[in-house]
Design a binder for these strands. Structure first.
Lengths: 102, 102
DNA sequence: TCTAAATATCGCATTATTTCGATATGGTCA
DNA sequence: TGACCATATCGAAATAATGCGATATTTAGA
């Protein structure tokens, strides 16, 4: 758990919004029609839809998602041409605990 | 509650360490001998001692403490020539809750 | 009122982050 | 294979954060 990297991710409001959208993809994104049945309902969202909603360029959102993955705030899975990201709830919970105890 | 400002504070490891020292000043700082009896045990620590331990210049630590106060992560009280800072536990708790729910 | 101590503020150089456009990579399907 | 789509990576310019030294402010005490 690299708390330094985690807090650096959170220091950017667009990244925080992405995290919060991924908390409940159903209300923030259309259905992931290319995602196989077995992966539905796990909170995965593809990069393109996140980019659209975030209002930044494709390269920027890709960079953000990578930072969030390095910090283990997100996990990802590549399926076909798409990369799907979802929250890593364990890291978020540990981060909350860290702040409460810190 | 300006979460953006709070996360920006936390994005710096020296500031995070200051916050954690102030969680338990007794084990990290000598007694505050100039602090009146009525304020003892409330977790107040003066700027000079925080500076020494943080290993940055006086102007830098003053700047940091001000950022943390603006973000309501710290409160302060001026007594004589000294400014004493202590944690604002309410903000820290709300921040932890925010991350857990976000 | 002068001096000294503690802290705050200012100005600035350095370094890091942000964010883009361009390009590369990897996967799909005709 | 070749064209195309989604995503990743690269390189660079703009902006923001870091952190210092110098200086100002505030308070205490002689």
């Amino acid at each position: 758990m690299n708390m330094d990297a985690i807090f650096k991710v959170l220091a950017n409001p667009v990244r925080v919004r992405i995290l919060s959208w991924l908390k409940d993809p159903g209300t923030h994104f259309p259905p992931m029609i290319h995602l196989p049945e077995a992966e539905q309902g796990k909170g995965y969202v593809c990069v393109g839809l996140i980019q659209e909603k975030a209002g930044v360029t494709q390269s920027t959102v890709s960079h953000y998602l990578n930072l969030m993955k390095q910090a283990e705030l997100l996990s990802c899975k590549r399926i076909g041409q798409w990369t799907y990201y979802c929250r890593n709830e364990a890291t978020l919970q540990k981060t909350a605990d860290y702040i409460a105890r810190m």
